[in-house]
Design a protein around this nucleic acid. Structure first.
Length: 559
RNA sequence: GCGGGUGUAGCUCAGUGGUAGAGCGUCACGUUGCCAACGUGAAUGUCGUCGGUUCGAAUCCGAUCACCCGCUCCA
């Protein structure tokens, strides 16, 4: 077993032992992809959400130009009119048809095996012929087969497929003489294909990166013989099956096709759908942001890695609306703000990585996206904590068109420039559960020289319990001295009183809960009015006056 | 969905056909008093589930379920 797996197992064990996280429905054998937070976990998660709301919504940092901007919140319903998900592209795009190979058991997303489908008619040679034919007859219509991207069984490499695909497109562009294809020359390099959006990513002769949309990209089951991309067995692929990643349910007592609704797969759409409501009822002006924290649901095919990929999870999302001229600036602003936020809560910067997504992995709505990734112990590569996406005006235009009949329905007027535009949107979308897991793995510390070798070094703002209050012994009047101190602190901070067992065990328990400070009321409290403060991180002790406990905590926690 | 692994107390695990166990943790009482102290005692189990073989099954066989790991997938 690898060291990182071992660490992860210790973390999972501690989380269960101390009541951070339980598997959902455990007594019935559990249910994959769902998790429950216990008494300590819920405090931790609540602190994370409170910090985010405080730091992003109520006290957002100054903008890139020093300008202040407004942030407001909403809390939208999880179930919305299903048209929302049609307009947003989730109904079409979120349901991925999958095919399995009956020979080698490999599974592929149907629209991602485009390059290795054998379609009716053309082989590579046919296509090459067609390319030549069309090249020599530029005014003629294309041969029908050239409308289709394909490769034959002989084309075993993606490179070869792309070569031919490139030829096809170049020929097509020449034949059609369409302006936007003019940049294609024999030297054009095809770097990748996004079958989802039907986009080709190319580098031109001049080294310029361009995108071309292709309408006739064949991605369906029209093949007569479809070799498996992996083992090349013929006719081994199953019919494509829908793996709808959205949870479906029904409204109303009667269930029929008209009652079908979805559990939201992201909180963002609630914000877009309420954009006009917020504009009309709140005195916000572009640029401004709308924030929401809430649950979202995705039928992940294979939930793994503890709570990292759950089917029910919580998001903290901002949709920041700005002038398209300034969207790049705000995109970079939010990306940097969000990274700093994680660092401010104790995530080591060398475990954080901003990763700019490649063109071919961008979602259908996204112009640019930076994943903020964290190096979890369970993976070799950093994993996504948050995506900061430049969504352009995609969502507002899509909802404008679908709900009001025109894409510019949600355009706004800039008072200064008298310019009308549909705002661009920057979306920092963070996973609450993923960050909770990151804080847990980050906090987990092991030092065999300590009396309590395992301890959780939570950032003080996130610690589920801020302080312990212990009478050294449960007699001699010490509990009577400790109780008022506890009563005082608990009014302001999450705090635990414990008079049971030895002081060492109590410290150790607090170490596993990640409590930063413990106040011990001892005999000197009686005689000199001092209490002993014990620090979680180095087990050091100091004496302070018993009246200063709350003040000490406020000071040390910075709260 | 495929392959591999694992299911016994809250946790870690022992138990290869004959009464269900240990350590840790938890709780109580006592002793003690500044880093998981000590003593005594207690609670906690459909041995994942169902079926079969057997006089007798945690143990052998079959099936099934769940979880973990790998593959696949993750808009």
């Amino acid at each position: 077993m690898s060291k990182s797996t071992e660490t992860m197992e210790k973390i999972v064990a501690l989380c269960r032992r101390r009541g951070f996280i339980f598997g959902s429905s455990e007594i019935y054998g559990g249910i994959g992809g769902f998790w429950d937070y216990g008494p300590l976990g819920v405090e931790l998660k609540r602190n994370i959400k409170d910090c985010w709301w405080h730091d992003m919504v109520r006290n957002p940092p100054p903008g890139p130009d020093g300008r202040k901007f407004q942030m407001v919140g909403v809390d939208c319903s999880i179930i919305m009119n299903p048209k929302v998900w049609e307009a947003s592209g989730h109904v079409g795009g979120f349901a991925d048809p999958m095919v399995d190979c009956k020979e080698c058991n490999a599974r592929f997303r149907a629209d991602q095996v485009y390059s290795l489908f054998l379609l009716k008619g053309p082989s590579i040679e046919h296509l090459r012929d067609a390319v030549e034919y069309n090249a020599s007859h530029p005014k003629d219509h294309l041969k029908p087969e050239i409308e289709v991207f394909a490769c034959s069984v002989e084309a075993n490499s993606v490179t070869e497929t792309l070569d031919v695909a490139g030829d096809v497109v170049r020929a097509a562009s020449k034949a059609r003489n369409i302006g936007k294809y003019k940049k294609f020359t024999p030297e054009t390099k095809l770097r990748g294909v996004s079958s989802r959006s039907g986009t080709l990513f190319c580098t031109t002769e001049a080294g310029e990166d361009i995108q071309v949309h292709v309408e006739a990209l064949a991605t369906d089951d029209s093949a007569t013989a479809r070799p498996c991309p992996k083992c090349h067995a013929e006719d081994s692929l199953t019919e494509s099956r829908e793996f709808n990643l959205m949870f479906e349910t029904n409204t109303g007592a009667l269930q029929d096709s008209t009652s079908k609704v979805y559990l939201r797969p992201e909180t963002a759409q609630g914000i877009f759908v309420n954009f006009k409501n917020v504009m009309d009822t709140t005195r916000v002006k572009i640029p401004f942001g709308i924030a929401q924290i809430g649950k979202a649901f995705r039928n992940e095919i294979n939930p793994r890695n503890y709570t990292f990929r759950s089917r029910e999870f919580e998001q903290m999302e901002i949709e920041f609306f700005c002038n398209p001229n300034e969207s790049k600036m705000w995109y970079e602003f939010w990306r940097d703000v969000r990274i700093k936020w994680y660092e401010s809560l104790g995530i080591q910067s060398d475990k954080l990585r901003p990763r700019e997504q490649g063109e071919d992995e961008l979602a259908h709505y996204s112009d640019a996206c930076t994943d903020i990734e964290y190096m979890f112990p369970f993976a070799d590569e950093p994993q996504e904590l948050e995506g900061v996406a430049h969504r352009g005006s995609f969502d507002l235009m899509a909802h404008g068109k679908a709900s009001k009949g025109k894409e510019t329905a949600f355009a706004v007027l800039d008072d200064a420039t008298k310019e009308r535009f549909v705002p661009h949107v920057i979306e920092p979308s963070a996973g609450v559960d993923r960050f909770t897991l990151a804080t847990i793995t980050e906090a987990y510390s092991f030092d065999e020289n300590r009396a309590s070798p395992e301890f959780m070094k939570f950032h003080p703002r996130l610690a589920p319990i801020k302080a312990g209050v212990f009478p050294l012994v449960a007699k001699d009047g010490l509990p009577e001295l400790a109780e008022p101190i506890y009563a005082d602190i608990r009014k302001h901070f999450s705090c635990q009183y414990d008079a049971k067992q030895s002081i060492g065990k109590r410290y150790a328990r607090m170490d596993e809960a990640g409590t930063p400070f413990c106040f011990t009321i001892d005999h000197e409290t009686k005689e000199q009015g001092t209490v002993t403060v014990r620090n979680r991180d180095d087990a050091s002790q100091e004496k302070i006056d018993k009246s200063r406990c709350l003040e000490y905590l406020r000071d040390k926690l910075g709260l």
